[in-house]
Each structure stands twice: as structure tokens, then as C-alpha cells.
Write a protein that binds this DNA or RNA. Structure first.
Lengths: 193, 193
DNA sequence: CCGTAACGATGAGGTATGTCAAGAAAGCAA
DNA sequence: TTGCTTTCTTGACATACCTCATCGTTACGG
């Protein structure tokens, strides 16, 4: 068993209970992939074909606006899923880019494979829906914070909630994620005492 | 069949195919409820017990911060679902309020009933997951806009995407939803030529 | 280990949006 | 209708955050 699948196996075990046969099915379905720092998992304009589970490293989803500014939509690290669900669902070109912030490793599950897995392993289907449910809740929380907090409050909340991202991602990307300029974030960080 | 269920039946028919038996099961499970303008569907501190489908009217989810300011998290009208998924999932007190902006009618499905329905009607389960998936995608889009757009861009996008909300909700609530002050929204609207 | 490039820090000044206050308009109850 | 309340508009001013430019620091490929 690959190191990558071991991480995934632990993750699944933490969320549901599956037979050895089911784990075999999962392992056969997962395509491991390594990504070097700065390498793309998905590029704007391409159709997103995979649900990706991260077994190692740190990735980001970002969009580029007309003026060429990057906007980080989200970060994701070990034990997180990442994809463009909209492109995956509609099979239309993605508006987003996903790339590696660190050297990373992921497991790819293409759309039809995922369908097969959720159809044949109900407990796995339930886990996947549970993940989606939590993702939605997290998004609602972020929206709440985005519309109601100052830059400083957003940053403090971010650091508390995601210390891993705060330590591992460059400040310019964190600023982008928070919807503020890097200079503003720098000042915020340095004004503390 | 009540007028409310008729709306729901049409909605379900648009999204999936169900037998008459299944529709009977749904109708038996749905508790209709009328809400007068300003009436609460959920109050902060209470545990959210229901998935609610709106058959008539307009509701909002909002949070109140320490300073007493209201922040509108979302609007929802006919053919939309509304609830606090976090409270529903965890059975912890909600941080949000949901109330009626207009006289409204909803169908309530409590958590265990919903579980029973999705367990016994796979097509319905699939539809519900599909709705959640779309909700998540919508949230991601809103986050993207929140971090990358000016107040004016946010307002224009909002009007285009949700003309119904733009016409039916008071401006102070729309401003709150966009994360800006009512005065700012008023100026934006009136500066056009 | 060096040189270059990317990143972060900091200053000066600008702009979008917020705050507070007053008045006009619109909704609503009697 | 009338009067009362809530919502919207508008102005003057405050401020959080942005922009642009510069410089120090860190990362990294050769």
C-alpha cells in the first residue's frame, strides 16, 4: 500500500466503517499523483475531471480577474478534498486554478469512478455527503465573517482556525484569501505590541 | 392536496422522477406552516430541528454581532430550502435567526423524517444531495465576489443574479447581505446618471 | 556561495466606504 | 384621510484600507 493511500485509509477510518473489500475497491480506484511546488492540478479553462484527496502538502484554489489580480478562494492541505465542484458537475471549463504551494501528493478519483464508489459503498457515499455538508457550513461561516468583520478580525480568526495555513502559506496569498492587500496584512501583523 | 404541497410537488418533479407512492410519503411527512411578516422560523439560541422548503414568501437568515448589528447571511424565497445546517447537524444552539420578510408559507421536515425519506427514496436522496452541492457552489461564488469586488460590483451582480430579492427585500437588508452600509447602497443606487 | 528574484516591511498620500445627523418619502394603523 | 413609524436620501466629515514607491530580507537555481 502506498504512503498516500495509507493517509486516505486513516482518514476514511476516522469518518466511517468499511470492510477490507471496500478498502480494496477504494485503493484500486485512487490514482496517486505527485505535484511539485507551483505545479497546477487544474488550470482555468480546463474541465475539472477529478475529486482530489490531498495526502501530503498544501494547495490553493484561486481566480484571476480582468486586471490580472489573483484571488485565493481557498486553501487545502493533508486530509482535505479539493476540486472545482462546479466544473466537475457541469463539465464546463473551470474559472479557477488549483496549484501546489508546497510539493504535494494527491489521490485522484474521476467523476465516474466516484459515482461507482458512492453507488456501491453506501457508507462511503454517506461520508462524502457529510464532507460536503461540512464544507457548506464552513462556507457560510466564511461568508458571515467576510461581510461582518474588519481586516484585523478576519486575520485573527483565520490564524486561530487554520494555524497550519497561517504558517505555511505566503502572506500575499493569505491576504488574498482574506480579501485585503499584502501591505495591509503586513501592517496588521507588525502592529501587535 | 394543499397549495403549499403543490408547489413542492412541482419542484420535486422538476428535479427528479418519483412514483405516486413516493409523493404520498413526502406529503405525509411535510408539516405546513404559515409565517406572518417578521415572524421567526428560528431564533438564535434555539436548536434548528427542521429542513424547511419555502412554498410562498421571502425569508432571511441573519446573525447579530456584539454591537447589535444585524448581518444578513442569505435570503430565500419560493422553491428554496432554508435551515441552519450547522445546528441541524450538531444539534447545538443556532447562532442565527431566520425570519419572514413577507407573509410566507413553508413545509417542515424534521431531521429524523428527512433521514427516513432519504433512506427510503434514493432518487429523493440524490436530489437533496444535488441541492446541497449547488448550494456549496453558490457559496463559493459568493465568497469569490466578497473578496474580489467593490461595493458597486457586488450590488450589480446581486441585482442581476437575484432580481427577486433585489425587488422584494428592503435596502437595509440588501446592504447588510452585501456587507456594506445602507447609506452606501443608497448612494450607489442613486448615482446612476 | 553567489546573484537574482520573490517576498515582506514601511512611508506618504489617495479613495472608497463608514459614521453621524437631518430631513424627505414611503408604509401602515386607526 | 390623518398621524406615526420606519425606511430611504443626502451632506459633512472620519477612517480603514488601498496604491505606489522604496528598501531590506529571504529563498533558491546555477
Amino acid at each position: 500500500m502506498s504512503a498516500g493511500f495509507e493517509v486516505f485509509r486513516d482518514y476514511v477510518t476516522r469518518h466511517t466503517q468499511l470492510s477490507e473489500v471496500d478498502f480494496g475497491t477504494l485503493e484500486a480506484a485512487a490514482k496517486p499523483k505527485k505535484l511539485r511546488k507551483h505545479q497546477y492540478l487544474l488550470q482555468e479553462g480546463d474541465v475539472c475531471r477529478y475529486h482530489c484527496f490531498i495526502t501530503k502538502g498544501l494547495l490553493r484554489t484561486y481566480a484571476v480577474d480582468e486586471k490580472g489580480n489573483e484571488h485565493v478562494i481557498r486553501f487545502a492541505m493533508e486530509n482535505w478534498w479539493i476540486s472545482d465542484r462546479e466544473s466537475l458537475l457541469t463539465e464546463q471549463p473551470s474559472k479557477f486554478n488549483i496549484d501546489a504551494i508546497e510539493d504535494s501528493e494527491v489521490l485522484l478519483f474521476d467523476k465516474s469512478t466516484m459515482q461507482m464508489l458512492t453507488d456501491s459503498i453506501p457508507a462511503f457515499a454517506k461520508m462524502v455527503t457529510g464532507v460536503l455538508d461540512k464544507s457548506f457550513i464552513t462556507s457560510q461561516t466564511r461568508i458571515h465573517e467576510a461581510i461582518s468583520s474588519t481586516a484585523e478580525e478576519k486575520y485573527n480568526t483565520f490564524v486561530q482556525r487554520y494555524p497550519g495555513f497561517a504558517l505555511r502559506a505566503p502572506q500575499s496569498m493569505i491576504a488574498s484569501y482574506l480579501g485585503i492587500k499584502p501591505e495591509t496584512l503586513s501592517r496588521l501583523r507588525n502592529k501587535k505590541h
